[in-house]
């Protein structure tokens, strides 16, 4: 899994590529710990092929961290199979998910 972060003004975009599973979740957690004071966090999942509950937990944790002090969070470009996991767990309704 590779994670790339882009800070553009107040917006931090996090690009994730690969599998977000129980093995890669700790790496994800560590790399997204510092939101660099961004008010808006965009999580780009275009490169994510797979997600499990471990990855889901980290995504939800990141969402909570981002919106904690009135910031905003957006999850975008989620692939079909990954989207199924959000839908099944009902998080599709809680997280601000956009198709692109």
């Amino acid at each position: 899994m590779t994670i790339t972060k882009e800070l553009n003004g107040n917006t931090l975009t996090i690009f994730v590529e690969g599998w977000l599973d129980t093995l890669t979740a700790p790496q994800f957690r560590q790399e997204v710990q510092d939101l660099q004071g961004a008010e808006k966090v965009i999580l780009d999942f275009e490169g994510v092929d797979y997600i499990s509950s471990a990855g889901l937990r980290e995504t939800v944790a990141l969402y909570r961290e981002a919106v904690k002090d009135g910031g905003s969070f957006e999850l975008r470009r989620v692939n079909g199979k990954v989207m199924d996991v959000f839908t099944l767990t009902g998080f599709d309704k809680k997280l601000n998910i956009s198709a692109d």
């Binding site: 509950s53 889901l56 939800v60 767990t89």
Partner: peptide
């Protein structure tokens, strides 16, 4: 039942549900 899950505060138990 997932509809009864506290999405706002909980974070565990998702695996079993999945």
């Amino acid at each position: 039942d997932i509809d009864e899950y506290d999405h706002e505060n909980r974070i565990g138990g998702l695996g079993r549900f999945l």
